[in-house]
């Protein structure tokens, strides 16, 4: 998950705490991850719009994406957000900035030189957790609620895999290619919602049945079905544009 740096300028201390809490709360569920930075370079900066109508010039030089927090019922503006601070609107603005930063590979214009590159991050990314391959494998007890899946196709895919077979986070990462942190976080979320269950212990091996004509009909249904390999699955997904 890409990480971006958010600066705060002359905001009340309580508001800084609120913004920092929101960034931590939504760190797992957003397409991009924002962290509060104490010093530039910033990818975006929040300023107190009640103290100045326009951001100070040095801020404009430091960061092209400035959001002013204005007084309640202030006139709307693309670079302003009226108080009280609404998490959904702030996150919507940050997602938009993140998308723009990810797309923008052109050098900064000469009239507003940046003192630091606009791509993330002086702060090193959090290392991905190690996922032991022999961790207990669990499967879904029932299909998760919409609030757990949040219309997220990656979560739907992970839940689908777990509905079919007992897996651990290591298996999920191998099957989906998603970051280890996402796979682990989702498994923990499902566990906290009491949605995962360990498969029943395998029964002791029975002696091989005598070869009789009757055993020929005891094939499981899947053996009669056409085989569909991982390569065909990839080809099918490509055909669907996935």
């Amino acid at each position: 998950m890409p990480q971006f740096k958010l600066g705060v300028h002359e905001l009340p201390a309580a508001e800084v705490v609120l913004v920092r809490t929101l960034m931590r709360l939504f760190a797992q569920d957003r397409p991009s991850r924002w962290v509060i930075a104490d010093a530039p370079p910033y990818d975006a900066v929040l300023v107190d719009g009640c103290r100045a109508d326009t951001p100070p010039e040095h801020l404009r030089r430091l960061c092209p994406h400035v959001l002013r927090l204005t007084r309640i019922n202030a006139d709307p503006a693309p670079d302003a957000l009226a108080r009280p601070l609404r998490a959904d609107r702030l996150l919507q603005w940050l997602d938009g900035v993140a998308s723009g930063v990810a797309r923008d590979t052109a050098p900064a214009p000469a009239s507003a030189p940046l003192t630091a590159p606009s791509t993330p991050a002086a702060e090193p990314p959090r290392p991905e957790p190690e996922l032991p391959a022999d961790a207990p494998r669990l499967s879904l007890r029932r299909w998760p609620r919409a609030a757990v899946l949040r219309d997220n196709p990656q979560r739907v895919r992970m839940a689908t895999l777990l509905s079919r077979r007992a897996l651990n986070a290591h298996d999920l990462r191998r099957l989906t290619g998603l970051p280890a942190s996402e796979c682990l976080a989702f498994m923990r979320l499902l566990q906290s919602a009491d949605l995962l269950v360990a498969p029943p212990a395998a029964p002791p091996a029975a002696p091989a049945p005598a070869a009789t004509p009757a055993t020929a009909t005891a094939q499981p249904p899947s053996k009669a079905r056409p085989s569909f390999t991982q390569g065909l699955i990839s080809s099918f997904r490509k055909r669907l544009g996935l």
Binding site: V156, T160, R165, I233, R237, L242
Partner: peptide, 17 residues
């Protein structure tokens, strides 16, 4: 509709894993 088909593919993937 693509998502519906993709969930079938994910189930096949789990079976093959």
């Amino acid at each position: 509709v693509t998502l519906l088909i993709d969930t079938l593919l994910a189930q096949i993937e789990a079976s093959l894993y």
